[in-house]
Structures are given as structure tokens and as C-alpha cells.
Amino acid sequence: MTTMLQEPPDVAVSAKLIIRNLNIFYGAFHAMKNASLDVPANNVTAFIGPSGCGKSTFIRALNRMHDLTPGARVEGEVLLDGEDIYAPSIDPVTIRHRIGMVFQRPNPFPKTIFENVVYGPRIHGIGGRAQLAEICERSLKRAALWDEVKDRLDRSALELSGGQQQRLCIARCLAVDPEVILMDEPASALDPIATSKIEDLINDLKKEYSVVIVTHSMQQAARISDLTAFFLMGELVEVGTTSQVFTKPEDKRTEDYITGRYG
């Protein structure tokens, strides 16, 4: 265990998300044990760890997706700009407006490309066609998809390739103009070329957003992230700058994982 975790955060100014003593249960199963972590603004934070260690469980707590999982329970604090997103007075819907999420498998709506991108803005009450068109173009450009789809915005999103669909989902997420973007293995279903496009994109996104990404690939974490958090069996074992975690990990278990001893 790293020691910094339980102390009051004096780095709060630059921390976008502050997670304290997070415990997550599925029924009686304790899936995340007392994890604490700071997510700095304008950085990429990567979550690594073996399958089933709780990476998705953790990241889904950051925009209250567990509200949708019957039987799931979250305890602890998740502060967004100092405000607890689990406070009773907070509407989870407004939280998800500020913290967007991209999923492992591309999940475009069975609608047109245009309607996919402007779905969020529409939900939040933007109705003007010109304004929506502007948002659509800006988001697709931001997601590096515009050139490939600008002539077929009114075609079904399901006609796109997997990699294009995933970038569409990122564009759809950006269209809501979130402050934090959570990505749960966004490239695991994609080929190397599509993956490298997504990685370039993530590198670009951190200029404006705070990005949290779950990845199975340590190379990917090393390539794109500034911070890395290592999870094992429902525990946040270690968190630090990516170079530190990969070159001189503090915990023996991290070292074993990095050097491939967990397979």
C-alpha cells in the first residue's frame, strides 16, 4: 500500500477527482476494498491489473454507473472538484453530464451518425439544427472521424467499421462537453491501426479533459498515460507516475505483474 492515500489532499487544486475509501459490493461480494486515488486534471490516468481485479468496477463508480447494476452498493467518497458525487443532494444525471464514459465494446445507437453524435446535446435541451450541426462537426473532428464520415452523416452508424464506431462513441461523448472522460478498455475490440488512432486521440484529449482509461495492455498504459494505478483482487495496490510504476514499483505485487509473473 502506498502511504499518501489516506492523507488529506493538499494537491486538491490540481486534482479533478478525489476518491477516498471507496468500497464497492455486489450483493455480499466485496469487489473493491477501500481504494483511494487522485485523478489530476489534464492528465491520462491508466488502470491496469489482471482480469477480474476490479478495474471496471472502480471506473464505473466514477460516474455512478453502479446505480444501474441491481444489487451493487458503493461506499466512500468521490469528489468532483471537491463535491461528493454520491451526496444525497446530487442528481446522478448531472454528474454523468460532466463525467462521460466510453465502453469496451462500441455501442452506437441504431440511428444515423448525426443523431448519434447529437444525442447528448438533444437530451440536454439543445434543439437548433444549425447549432446541432456545429456540435456534430466539432465533435467528429475532435474524435478524428470527420473526414471519414462527413459525406454520410445521415447513414446508419451501424454501417461503420468497429474502429470508426468506437471513435463515433468518443465523439458522442465529447458532444456533451464533459470535464472527465472515462474509458473502459476502449481499444480492446479493435485492430492495431484503429487502436493507434484511438491512442493518438487520447493523447490529444488530455489537453482539454481529464482522462481515465482502463487497459489490459501494459504497453498501452506506458504509451499514453501520465499516471498508472495497479489493481489486484479488488485492491488498489499502487498508484504513481507511469514511469515510476513501470520502472521502480514500490510494491512487490506490482513488480511481479509488470514483469509478467501473473501471466
Binding site: 460516474n63 444501474l68 462521460g100 447528448g120 437530451i123 462513441c169
Partner: peptide
């Protein structure tokens, strides 16, 4: 189910997710 989650993650209410995405799909 994936579409429902996608919609909610974009800040829709559960009802909006059901009526705008789940039901059409």
C-alpha cells in the same frame, strides 16, 4: 442493455434511455 448504459452515461434519465434508445432498438 449496452445502448441503455450508453444513453445513461451521456446524462440521460432512465426514462429517456428507455423511450429514445431502448424502445426503438
Amino acid at each position: 442493455k449496452a445502448l441503455y448504459e450508453a444513453s445513461v452515461a451521456l446524462g440521460s434519465t432512465s426514462w429517456q434511455a428507455v423511450t429514445r434508445v431502448v424502445v426503438p432498438s
